[in-house]
Amino acid sequence: MPGRLPVPAIRRAHRLVGGFRHRRPRQLAYGIKALTAALLAWALAGPAAPEGRAYVAVATALLMVNASTVYRSVTNALQSIAAKVVGLVLALMTVRLLGPTAGAIAVIALLTVLAGPRRTSDGRLQVASTAVVALAAMAGDPMGGLVSPVLQTLAGAVVGIAVNALVLPPLHVDDSDSAVRTLAHAVGELLHDMGTGLARGELRSKAPGWLHRGRQLEKHLAFTQEQVRQADESLRWNARCVTHGSHDVTYGELFSALRGVSLQVRGIARTLADNAYDHPDRHLGLQFLERYAETLQLAGTAVRSLVDDLRTETDPADPHERLRTAIEGALAWHETLTDLIGQGTLTKPGAWHVYGSLMTDVERLLADLDYAGAHRT
């Protein structure tokens, strides 16, 4: 009908509205903090600014108050102040030698771009921009043009840090928790799916998909590592962290365990994918695959138990007990498989390297789960 939006457009609109509603409290807090910092910086640095217009102080305060953590706002402030001081001194020297001319701008650009390693390019560009902007102000009053921006920068940095630290200082514990849970679910589901597929005899058809999902775990690992790092950083110098329990700082250890498990899962997926199309004499025996499948399923349950409360009406056991039971069950299957391989019951000619790779990966996986489970109880 004319005038009606298509269904995909309506769904996208609903998602946007839902996302806005979810982020609204956080965005409102950021807005209040930014407005507070801007007004305080303008009032504090006004006497030191030309005609009371403390634009540099306001800009610096906004940068500091919008830092992702209190610790980051302090380090950013120190870097910003150092860059501005160097830029202003550089501008003063070039004005004294060359005057406010195009030659002074060329000298500033050459010195800041060519000096220092490439990794400090952001700081050097800040030095250059500060020096160029200061040329006009310092042309008529060199000392006034040098002192006022420095005082404004100091005032803005102090205000921005204070507001960021005292008015709802940012914490990223929930984001870290969510990222770790998502990673654990991805790893646990892949283990469970590999075990289910092996039990159903779907190795050849499902192995490429398992390998693809194993490779995709790298993206989950990189994202989760950044979230955990930011969460740990947000707890530094943060008054709000005293209201949170000690369990909020254990995501680093849990992530380290999950990273080790992820590496072993990817190795298992790689070996299974290679074996699916390998020489017939190197195919794994059905008895081995059946037992290995159950080991993977138990391991998948153990991984999910690290982050989920798996209590149900039929199984009301504590999640830590279920984790311990799942790991012990997987270890028992591992010992059984090792004994059968040692006796030559499950082996085929030419398949020793495949058995060895799979057993080594699952042994390391279970060791990481055992360590993580012991530290979560």
Score class of each variant (00 low, 15 high):
I327M: 07
L168R: 08
D318M: 10
L235H: 13
V228C: 06
A162L: 14
G344E: 08
M1C: 05
G342Q: 10
D315F: 00
A273K: 09
R15Y: 05
S305E: 02
D370V: 00
V362N: 00
T347H: 03
A162Q: 03
Y277P: 00
R23D: 15
T312K: 02
L298S: 02
V17R: 15
G260E: 04
A186P: 10
H353R: 15
S73G: 09
Q79D: 08
A222S: 15
S256Q: 13
L366W: 06
E335M: 09
L166W: 09
V74A: 07
T69N: 07
V187H: 01
T312H: 02
Q126N: 10
E226D: 13
H334V: 05
S246H: 11
A231T: 06
V159A: 05
T69V: 04
F223G: 11
L146P: 11
V261R: 01
A37S: 13
E218P: 05
R24N: 04
N164H: 07
T347G: 08
D248N: 08
Q230A: 12
A49I: 03
A137S: 15
A330P: 02
I108V: 15
H279C: 04
F20I: 15
L369G: 06
F288V: 10
L221T: 09
G160P: 09
Y277S: 12
L365R: 05
R12W: 10
V65M: 12
K348G: 01
A91R: 02
L166Q: 02
T347M: 12
G31Y: 07
I161V: 11
R270G: 01
R215G: 13
L198D: 01
Q152S: 05
L298M: 11
P280F: 01
T130G: 05
L98V: 05
L284F: 02
L358I: 03
L323Q: 14
A106R: 01
H22C: 03
G252P: 03
R118K: 14
Y355G: 04
R23E: 14
R11Q: 13
M194N: 04
R15P: 08
L44Q: 06
T243M: 12
V159K: 06
A91S: 15
D318F: 07
E313R: 15
P47N: 06
M1L: 08
P319M: 05
V70L: 03
C241Y: 08
V133E: 01
S178Y: 12
Q264E: 13
